[in-house]
C-alpha cells in the first residue's frame, strides 16, 4: 500500500508552481491545450481535477472542455498509473500472433483488467495500439523495457522480476 500516494502529497506546491510555469509558457501558443496536458501528465503522472482546473483557468477555457479533451485521447489518464505500467500491444501483427492470450494471462495473474491498477499501486495494465515493434510480435512493454515474442507462459517469469 505504500506505493499509492494520496493526491495531496503528489500535488505538492513545487509541482503546482512548475505547472503555472508551463501554462505561462504556452499562453500565447495557438492550440496550447494538448501540449500543456502532455506536460502536466508528464509532471504529475496523471491529470487530476485540480490540475485540469488550473489549466482551464490559465488557458481561459472551461473545465468541462479540458475534461472533454483529456478523456478523448487515450494517452491522457485521470487515474494514477501503477509503479510498473504494463502495456500489451494489441496491434494487428501482435493480435494475429496471440497477444490477446498474453493479455488474458497477465490479467489473470494480477487479478485486474486492462485499464486498472492493482490495489497496492504496483502494477497497471494497459492494452495499447501498435507500439511499432511488429518484428517482435507479440510485444509487452513494462515501463520502458520491451519484451518481444511473448507467449502466455513467459508472463509469470517476467512479472517475478518486478516483485
Amino acid at each position: 500500500m505504500a506505493e499509492k500516494k494520496c493526491c495531496c502529497c503528489e500535488l505538492n506546491s513545487e509541482k503546482l508552481k512548475r505547472l503555472d510555469q508551463i501554462i505561462e509558457e504556452h499562453k500565447t501558443m495557438e492550440g496550447a491545450l494538448i501540449p500543456v496536458l502532455h506536460e502536466a501528465q508528464e509532471l504529475f503522472g496523471y491529470l487530476p481535477e485540480q490540475v485540469q482546473q488550473k489549466i482551464a483557468t490559465g488557458l481561459g477555457c472551461s473545465l468541462a472542455e479540458v475534461f472533454g479533451v483529456a478523456t478523448f485521447y487515450s494517452r491522457f489518464t485521470l487515474e494514477p498509473k501503477g509503479k510498473y505500467n504494463i502495456q500489451v500491444c494489441l496491434g494487428t501483427a501482435c493480435y494475429v500472433k496471440g497477444a490477446d492470450k498474453v493479455l488474458e494471462k497477465l490479467e489473470q495473474l494480477l487479478g485486474i483488467k486492462a485499464g486498472q491498477t492493482t490495489e497496492d499501486g504496483k502494477f497497471s495494465i494497459q492494452d495499447t495500439r501498435c507500439v511499432g515493434a511488429c518484428g517482435l510480435a507479440p510485444v509487452m512493454v513494462i515501463n520502458d523495457e520491451v519484451y518481444g515474442k511473448m507467449t502466455p507462459d513467459m508472463v509469470e517469469g517476467i512479472l517475478a522480476k518486478y516483485n
Binding site: E49, A64, G68
Partner: peptide
C-alpha cells in the same frame, strides 16, 4: 460561454457531461 457541459470520452462512451 458558460461551458458547464461538454462532450467527454469518445465513441460509444461519449457523453455530454459537466467536468469529472
Amino acid at each position: 460561454t458558460v461551458g458547464a457541459i461538454d462532450v467527454a470520452y469518445r465513441g460509444m462512451n461519449s457523453k455530454i457531461t459537466p467536468a469529472f
